[in-house]
């Protein structure tokens, strides 16, 4: 415990990984936000592709969790716009979809880094998110043990 404390201080000093959840259905964003916040991520939400892009351009997040089936601008288009914007750094995008039509390949074609089907399996979601954004406390503790 005595060894962990200074490390924990170090962790809180670091900026938490920021995830942007984009989904037009508020029930979905609320669920994902609650779960990811419980895992120690900072979560912001947007209720449309256009609103999401505006947030991404204003302050690029560390990961975008993106619903595919949305009105006006679907998740594929949002992904393409992120990839084609030279002013943005590389931002990992994980697509979330309940629709049968798009396959994982379609998602990867437009430049997505992950693909999750609804209903979202949390373990699967967290595995994908952790692979992209490793939990910092766990990492630091592991380093400590080593």
């Amino acid at each position: 415990m005595t060894i962990l404390l200074p490390k924990l201080n170090f962790v809180t000093n670091r900026v938490m990984d920021r995830i942007l959840v984009i989904d037009d259905i508020p029930d979905n964003t609320f669920l994902l936000q609650t779960l990811l916040e419980a895992e120690g991520y900072q979560v912001d939400v947007a209720d449309s592709g256009i609103a999401g892009l505006a947030k991404i351009e204003a302050e690029p997040p560390d990961l975008v969790l993106l619903d595919v089936m949305m009105p006006d601008m679907n998740g594929f288009e949002v992904t393409q716009r992120i990839r084609h914007n030279p002013n943005l750094p590389f931002i990992p995008v994980v697509l979330v979809t309940g629709h049968d039509q798009p396959t994982a390949a379609d998602g990867f074609d437009v430049g997505a880094d992950g693909f999750i089907r609804k209903p979202v399996d949390f373990d699967q979601l967290l595995t994908q998110v952790r692979a992209i954004l490793p939990p910092k406390i766990a990492n630091d503790c592991t380093k400590l043990e080593n």
């Binding site: 979905n28 669920l31 779960l35 419980a38 309940g98 629709h99 209903p119 979202v120 949390f122």
Partner: peptide
């Protein structure tokens, strides 16, 4: 049919998602 399957799944996602969340976590 595509709309039906989408519309029937949308509420299920919230129901299943929250049921699992409430079962496995403390809020």
């Amino acid at each position: 049919l595509a709309i039906v399957s989408h519309e029937l799944r949308t509420p299920l996602n919230s129901i299943l998602g929250w049921a699992e969340a409430l079962r496995t976590r403390q809020f």
